[in-house]
Design a protein around this nucleic acid. Structure first.
Lengths: 141, 141
DNA sequence: CTTACTGCAAAGGATTTGCAGACTA
DNA sequence: TAGTCTGCAAATCCTTTGCAGTAAG
């Protein structure tokens, strides 16, 4: 997990070997406003750098490295079978996901921000996943 | 979703066509103490009825039918790439999942039971997913 | 220079689907 | 009987892996 005192937002992590591909993935992920799937990122890469010859496997491997160091969070969302990745910008976020159009609506606060402890005995809680689901304005019946 | 006034716990849902396979899946799922993957259920089926010649596709198809009517909840858990299915017994449950051994520890109450509304604007919340993760007693460093 | 990273293609694993036969209501 | 459900096998889709060549420090 990320314990670096000198960690700066917007800079490529110092404890991860820098490569052209990783920098590009970093850029895409840090400028995204919501979680992206590996395939989303891959397509984005193809548009940005059509001649670079990226491979989807590189995307997965890079994401795994980022995740391992705690820079990226991997989640799965209701209504989709694939994984989504989000750059952990300081504090985490949660979403309300529309069951029909799959739109993601970020929640302002995390209700669990100040109650991380003591929910279960004999268990050290290091994090949580929270997702609300239902129907957004346009999809409501 | 399940709106039947005469719904009884422990009975096979009246609004789903009853077949030998579905009854068996129903039985397994309603007597399970925690979420099962489709493969878990399939293996269970093989043990219980070795000569029946079940197919894994039947399991998936039956689960989809149960889910569609709101009898079964499909989730994905941190640390695993597959889906887990749980019979919705009246009220839902949440779990703390160990990042190391993947043990599931049920939470006593759902912190969201009484605050379903108003977390996001223009969004009708119909449910939520909550999962705590960390390390259980035996896996703690 | 040495080690780690990448592209490519093939493998893997979970889940879905087409089809003809079997079963339920 | 009519329509749905099932088993089987093949097909998908997402994700991972092996390998030989390439790039980073």
């Amino acid at each position: 997990m990320r314990n670096h005192i000198d960690r700066e937002e917007g800079r490529f992590p110092a404890d991860i070997k820098k490569t052209k591909q990783r920098e590009e993935i970093f850029r895409i992920l840090t400028s995204a406003r919501e979680p992206m799937s590996a395939v989303d990122i891959y397509n984005c890469l193809l548009k940005t750098m059509p001649d670079a010859g990226f491979a989807i496997s590189t995307v997965y491997r890079s994401l795994a490295v980022f995740e391992e160091k705690g820079y990226v969070a991997k989640t799965s969302l209701t209504g989709s079978d694939m994984s989504y990745f989000e750059w952990c910008q300081g504090q985490h976020r949660h979403y309300a996901v529309c069951l029909k159009c799959h739109k993601l609506i970020p929640l302002k606060d995390c209700p669990f921000e100040h109650m991380e402890l003591d929910a279960a005995e004999d268990f050290t809680i290091t994090g949580h996943k929270l997702e609300l689901y239902g129907y957004c304005k346009g999809c409501r019946l």
